[in-house]
Nucleic acid binder design. Structure first.
Length: 876
RNA sequence: GCGGACGUGGCGAAACUGGUAGACGCAAGAGACUUAAAAUCUCUCGGGUUAUCCCGUGCGGGUUCGAUCCCCGCCGUCCGCACCA
């Protein structure tokens, strides 16, 4: 046969154009078929797509195309997470406007995504930086404000003194601003907050309902929310101790059972009492300053010694008026958890022990481990935090810690101090309210006006959106909105007096917290959502993205959906019914003799004596092959999707991203792997060609006709179809590809065996059916090849409009099966039997086998275990 | 420190719910075709002094007729959180 090669360079643009012209993937809201919403995390328009995008969108597209073929009304939209700092950084560096930069990137990346042949409904495209999007976000901000979900309060934030802006915790590296390198300061600023903590319990409880989420993500969110049950206990100032206003110190503890082991009280450096005590103690004031400076650095926290400063104050033990405890300011106590004060029990908390050893405060054990002799039980270097029996604890002696906790709580709830119960049970969360204020330009303006007389005044709904001014400068650090000559000067909507516009913008995570809802009716100009549309489409049936969003984006979206529900914008709480977190794309790294990183396109790899060696293309100098790492610009181990698509075609790139590695694990990009995928594309093309050559054009298959060859073809086609379906349903794309390869191999083998031509009518029809099954199976992964093959098989319409073949289990079933026969658990023989053979027959047939008798060697059969259709095990 | 995941050929991996370990592929080797190369096709490919046998899923135990899978204890790798009282 003459050259029969599939040419993706011609075919792919052709089919993309046809899909586009016929609006094949446009989705209507009022379609009667069952809905399926598949969504991949939308990209940040950074400039160009990378291989991670290719992997993410290839997976989503398989699901979308598959569900579509199975007769569902599939929503598969795409948009842009378009606000954010890189646009401002680019503006500063290149003197372009953030909007220009962003929209250029969007245009580039849209074209790249289109070249992948994704079945997206582009008519629903949204960009979060578009006023038609953020207008609704501003409206919801005001709805939330009215509903008490938005708060304005003072908070400690990371302040970069060089760039004049607040930084997120992630942007502070070793205590320094990631851009400026300046030491970050802690500042008290008034900021806007979303009251996510009001939803903490529900966000935690509802994790249990997310049974199609990875366990790992649920656990991470659970830990992040960080619920703990404990006790608030107030310690009275010892007589003559208090010089200031405070009469007591309130601590939070989860271990009230260890109260008789208390040796000290420690308060945070920012505790009001610490400040008060520092007023007449310069050394203490200096210590507090020191704590604040070190406070943010993670590295410093790891190594920091437990340090404190004795305030000279003393408090009384709640159960013994004659027992007083010293009060320290300590560097390891956090102001923003619990009450910012603790009681220290050195024997049963390692941090307290470290601290107590430093200041010689003692460590009386009060919980004795099981089996330990209490007279010899000593705490030296390691605190004991396990279970046991209470000792040295007066009325608690002999109880378990949990009994003692309850006992202490009950007693102190009864005891009165200053006219109130001395203690109170309290559930505490690590989760903090979500600070959304950012002193940046390229974000959604917060629609608020500050009036001298009226205070905080919402921008009236009819004046939304509050649009970003276009004429801004980036020649200096800080917020361009703040120094814009006119933008912030407005009159108060309430009293008409001169007022000031809020110049902070929203955290970009707000933008991505509801875009999935907006996709359901992106053209609604009057409201963020159309209830009939959003309630019909949500939840997202399958959400796919990187694990790096396990907490932030996914938790914020869960919160935001609840807030939208409580303000009437949606009718549910959980936006994502199914979540899948895909692995990264990784690649080998290369360095030249000077240690400079080299890109894969700069080198050649050869095999010498069974070892792979690399050379630089330009001068043939040796290159060392390094570890396999996440593709990154700094290590230069990236591969440009455009290059791959130009060289091999989108289908090959997609196929490779889906094969070999399980989708939740990292996939290693390799030239050999891509070539293997490309070979398979060609193999499929040739196979479909062979089938097209023998297939009869008309007539229909008749079941029950005894034509072994036809039955065999149908059997393998239906069997692999069934299995491939299962793999796709479970998002096991690597095994789905394997199933496709098995079918292709089997069909190639059968076709190669054909000696008689022409084949019988039934056999020809069976091949035709098998060919269509093959093409249907490959199409979700390789859609362009799918269409090309479909038309090669003689179809006029689009495969994208055709329905999925119906797998027939009866046709797939085999009449006879091979069953292993074991003796004492070791395989000794095989038994070929009818599929439906009953256990008695199986046992009888197995024992008759010569191999079995030989292996038994005269031993007496004690027992025979028969698992029909699986195994026979002879116990001798 | 706390929490979690993972550990199978030279490599990526597969194995349903405890039932033939290594499917499918990559790399490698041998051969066919070709003037040659590419492409394609055929065969081999966990280990063992070559077998109707033995060993083998990180290591050591256990449960079971039977364990990659379940239980206990180690070792290693990776990830998340991290002074959260």
């Amino acid at each position: 046969m003459f050259s029969d090669r599939y040419n993706p360079r011609e075919a792919e643009p052709k089919w993309q154009k046809i899909w586009d012209e016929r609006q094949t993937f446009r989705t209507e809201n009022n379609d009667p078929r069952p809905k399926y919403y598949v969504l991949e995390m939308f990209p940040y328009p950074s400039g160009r797509i990378h291989m991670g995008h290719v992997r993410n969108y290839a997976m989503g597209d398989v699901v979308a195309r598959y569900k579509r073929a199975r007769g569902m009304n599939v929503l598969h939209p795409m948009g842009w997470d378009a606000f954010g700092m890189p646009a401002e950084n680019a503006a500063m560096q290149n003197n372009t406007h953030p909007a220009t930069w962003t929209y250029q990137n969007i245009a580039t990346m849209r074209a790249q995504l289109k070249s992948m042949g994704l079945s997206l409904d582009w008519s629903r495209e949204i960009a979060t930086c578009d006023p038609s999007y953020y207008k609704h976000q501003q409206r919801m901000f005001l709805d939330f404000l009215r509903a008490g979900i938005v708060d304005r309060k003072q908070a400690k934030v990371n302040w970069d003194p060089v760039d004049h802006t607040v930084l997120a915790n992630e942007q502070v590296i070793d205590g320094r601003g990631w851009r400026s390198g300046a030491l970050v300061e802690q500042r008290e600023l008034t900021q806007w907050f979303f009251r996510i903590t009001d939803y903490a319990q529900d966000l935690l409880d509802s994790l249990q309902t997310l049974d199609r989420w990875p366990e790992k993500v649920r656990l991470m969110q659970q830990n992040w929310i960080g619920r703990s049950e404990g006790l608030l206990v107030r310690f009275e100032m010892a007589p003559g101790s208090s010089k200031g206003s405070a009469l007591e110190i309130e601590v939070y503890t989860t271990r009230p059972d260890t109260l008789f082991g208390a040796k000290f009280i420690a308060i945070a450096a920012d505790h009001p009492l610490a400040r008060e005590a520092a007023a007449d103690k310069p050394e203490l004031a200096a210590f507090i300053q020191e704590c604040r400076r070190v406070g943010t650095s993670v590295a410093a926290l790891e190594t920091a010694e437990k340090k404190g400063f004795d305030t000279g104050l003393r408090v009384t033990h709640p159960f013994d008026p004659s027992w007083t405890l010293p009060v320290y300011v300590a560097n390891f106590v956090l102001m923003d958890y619990g009450t910012g004060a603790i009681f220290g029990c050195p024997a049963h908390d390692q941090r307290d022990l470290d601290f107590a050893r430093h200041y010689d405060l003692g460590a009386t054990p009060v919980v004795c481990p099981p089996g330990q002799d209490l007279s010899t039980f000593l705490i030296e270097f390691t605190a004991y935090d396990g279970d046991g029996t209470l000792i040295n604890s007066r009325f608690l002696d002999g109880l378990t810690p949990s009994q003692a906790q309850d006992q202490v709580a009950s007693r102190l709830e009864q005891a009165m101090l200053g006219g109130r119960p001395q203690a109170q049970r309290r559930v505490n969360f690590k989760l903090r309210d979500w600070g959304v204020s950012r002193q940046r330009y390229w974000g959604c303006p917060i629609p608020i006006i500050h009036c001298e007389a009226c205070g905080v005044v919402p921008v009236p709904a009819e004046e939304l959106p509050v649009e970003l001014p276009a004429d801004v400068t980036f020649d200096r650090p800080g917020n361009p909105l703040e120094r814009h000559p006119t933008w912030k000067n407005v009159s108060c909507p309430k009293c008409g007096a001169a007022a000031r516009r809020e110049t902070d913008t929203m955290d970009t995570f707000v933008d991505s917290s509801w875009y999935f809802a907006r996709f359901t009716d992106p053209a609604n100009n009057a409201a963020p959502t159309t209830r009939s549309a959003v309630d019909g489409w949500l939840p997202v049936d399958q959400y796919i993205g990187g694990i790096e969003h396990a907490i932030l984006h996914l938790l914020y979206s869960r919160f935001f959906t609840r807030a939208m529900r409580d303000t009437g914008h949606v009718g549910l709480a959980e936006p994502f019914a199914g979540l899948f977190t895909q692995g990264m794309v990784v690649h080998e790294t290369y360095r030249d003799e000077e240690g400079h990183w080299l890109s894969p396109v700069e080198i050649d790899i050869e095999t010498e004596a069974n070892t792979r060696v690399a050379f630089r293309k330009s001068d043939r100098r040796p290159v060392s092959i390094g570890g396999i790492e996440k593709m990154s610009k700094s290590k230069r181990n990236t591969v440009d999707p455009d290059d791959i698509i130009a060289d091999y075609g989108a289908d090959t790139a997609r196929l490779f991203m889906l094969s070999d590695s399980p989708p939740d694990r990292d996939v290693i990009w390799s030239e050999e792997g891509v070539q293997g995928a490309a070979r398979f594309v060609q193999q499929l093309w040739r196979l479909v060609g062979s089938i097209a050559n023998i297939a009869a054009p008309a007539g229909s298959l008749v079941s029950g006709v005894d034509e072994p060859q036809a039955s065999e073809v149908r059997r393998i086609a239906h069997r692999h179809l069934m299995r491939a379906q299962e793999h796709i349903e479970r998002l096991r794309f690597n095994t789905a590809v394997a199933e496709l390869r098995k079918l292709a191999n089997a069909l190639s083998g059968l076709i190669g065996d054909i000696t008689e031509t022409p084949v019988s009518h039934q056999t020809a029809l069976a091949y035709r059916e098998a060919g269509e099954i093959l093409v249907a199976m490959l199409a979700p992964m390789m859609p362009h090849l799918g269409e090309e093959c479909w038309s090669r098989l003689g179809h006029d319409g689009l495969l994208s409009d055709a329905s999925w073949p119906v797998a027939d289990p009866a046709l797939a079933a085999e009449d006879t099966i091979v069953i292993p026969v074991q003796i004492n658990g070791k395989k000794r023989a095989e038994l070929i039997v009818s599929k439906n053979a009953n256990p008695a027959t199986l046992e009888e047939e197995a024992l008759k086998l010569e191999a079995v008798q030989n292996a038994l060697d005269g031993r007496i059969v004690k027992k025979v275990i028969v698992v029909p259709q699986r195994i026979v095990n002879v116990v001798a």
